[in-house]
Design a protein around this nucleic acid. Structure first.
Lengths: 347, 347
DNA sequence: TTGTATGCGTTATCAT
DNA sequence: ATGATAACGCATACAA
């Protein structure tokens, strides 16, 4: 075993010297360029192994103008939904030999700062933006900086975007409830903890309205509550909804996390699900499966994987500006489990 | 609005030229060095704003030998436990202005490859290793490369390590069960999906044995099963345990995920928890709270935060080799919820 | 086939 | 207080 003392890392110069060749030659064998005599190639390889040399990737990035990293800008990355997106991202980046930096954002300011700085800092070759909406000026600045960007669960006309049909998803959820005989349906909308620009829950509400219209059900604003995107948000909203004299027979929550909160509220109120209350969520996270919660399944992991894959393609083809951005639409699907039944007294 | 066409990012040279100063001067104002006449300083600042200039961080890393990033090597980062660790990591890195790269590992080979390559590649200033055990040669190589490393939920004498007392945790779990009157206690051990070097579950088993010894209970190997670290692993093991004629009255699972699997098994067997079966898990993830599962709480998020904080201190103090590594021990605590009761017919 | 020299964008060390 | 210039480690165009 060698000494424990810290030692300066060998450079390409050291390798060249030991192998008695020029740095250019070492660089060539490093990058698999042809035109190196097998004998010298082998000699260089031997020295590399002997010195335990690895190229300094920072220095390499200087000339190659590539870092091999992509940046993921994501709000609240520990939430199950985002976590599952990241799982897909990891699969795609690892497959293509890229690394990724995680930029977690909790406020809109932080988000805008990342949008502004990251393209110029050049620590990443591309940006994957999850559930966040760049404004027009930002989108333009991405292109000017030559920074490839892909939006996942978000849309901008200038950027490759990957969206799911939230209206259709909301429609599927409510239609299912209606088909089971429900007429009084509560909706728990989501309000982001901070002032992000966009709220997919509004589209899901639009889907609800379409289903209502179709069934000739009167939309009652009283049955729509806005709550935080988490369990306690769902729980509190449900508590409100369910303690009214004319409580709804079913609740559609705009996220599974909130729907789990609804389940908790029902439990604390000794309301049995689905006998006395039907519940449907949105997202299709693993927790929904554990809780046997009916939900609208988004292709979450696939969104992350496909988004990352598209981003890497943009990076490698270097087709930043000349190409028109792609718009990819993904579908949701109804997942019926144990939390939906016909309402009490339904004939 | 400027043209949309991609444009070369301005460099420090461009700023210098526009401000009619030398690059050195620009660098000085950029880095807040004193000895710049306020007038010129302002002129430079104006040009920087006018050109929308940001320093190229890669180039800066060339000379500064700092990237401002830390690498997190973590197995299966989407698992709730690791996810909560990462949450702590994010808090600490953001606080200190660092970014982090996520290196997810799924096999031991992959892990060893990261251990070998990352210190030489210099894309990160330090490494935070979660629940993974570097061998002696690896630990030495970290020091030789001058790469600060902190181990979380793992230990090596040469490296700053942050561990929880798994033996004590196992002991707490089983002692609680015994105090409730249980004598036949099943244990579900964990086996990693791949051949990682270490298994914390064995320490938890040792804690069980200590509690057994103390209570004069005979250890029965039949009641110890090894299963995957996930729900289905726990479910299948529990199914085996619970369909025996002399089934245990309580099960201690070495992770909450497996304990949830136990709950699922009990449900499918129409065994009521805790009336007919007591269950306790380990970790204290959020899911345990949702399921009202009793468990042994590890300070998960705190482990990530403290580990990252220690790592950043190592990086900033640059005290790689001269300092003796620190060993930090953290405690677990019993979290009693709804899944533990006295066994049937207990007087 | 191989060597040399220049540039990548900064910081830092000299000068002036 | 500021300017010129040499690193940093690598890739590459050009020479030999």
């Amino acid at each position: 075993m060698n000494s424990q003392k810290r030692v300066k890392a060998p450079t390409i110069q050291d390798v060249a010297r030991h192998a008695r060749v020029a740095v250019g030659t070492v660089s060539r064998v490093l990058n698999g360029h042809l035109g190196v005599k097998p004998a010298t190639r082998q000699r260089v390889l031997d020295v590399i192994k002997e010195l335990d040399y690895s190229p300094n990737l920072i220095a390499r990035s200087m000339t190659s103008r590539r870092t091999g990293s992509v940046g993921i800008i994501v709000p609240f990355f520990t939430r199950p939904f985002f976590n599952e997106v990241l799982q897909g991202v990891e699969i795609a980046t690892t497959r293509s030999g890229h690394e990724f930096m995680l930029y977690n954002v909790q406020t809109d300011d932080q988000c805008q700062a990342y949008f502004r700085e990251l393209p110029k800092q050049r620590k990443v070759d591309g940006l994957l933006v999850i559930s966040l909406y760049p404004d027009d000026a930002t989108a333009v600045s991405f292109r000017r900086a030559g920074m490839p960007v892909v939006l996942v669960d978000a849309y901008h006309p200038l950027l490759t975007s990957l969206i799911v049909d939230n209206i259709e998803g909301g429609y599927q959820a409510v239609k299912c409830l209606i088909e089971h005989g429900h007429r009084r349906i509560g909706f728990i909308n989501g309000i982001p903890e901070s002032d992000f620009r966009f709220n997919p829950a509004n589209d899901r509400l639009a889907g609800l309205q379409r289903a209502f219209d179709e069934a000739g059900i009167q939309y009652e604003p009283d049955l729509v509550l806005t709550a935080q995107w988490n369990r306690s948000g769902g729980r509190e909203a449900a508590l409100q909804l369910l303690t009214r004299p004319d409580r709804p027979t079913a609740i559609f929550a705009t996220s599974d996390l909130q729907a789990v909160g609804v389940l908790e509220a029902a439990r604390s109120l000794h309301l049995s699900v689905p006998a006395e209350l039907s519940v449907i969520g949105f997202d299709g996270i693993e927790l929904a499966e554990i809780m046997e919660l009916s939900t609208i399944q988004q292709p979450i992991q696939h969104m992350g994987e496909l988004g990352a894959q598209k981003l890497i393609a943009l990076i490698e083809d270097n087709e930043d500006s000349e190409s028109r951005p792609e718009l990819i639409r993904l579908q949701t699907s109804l997942l019926q489990r144990q939390t939906i039944a016909s309402p009490p007294h339904y004939t």
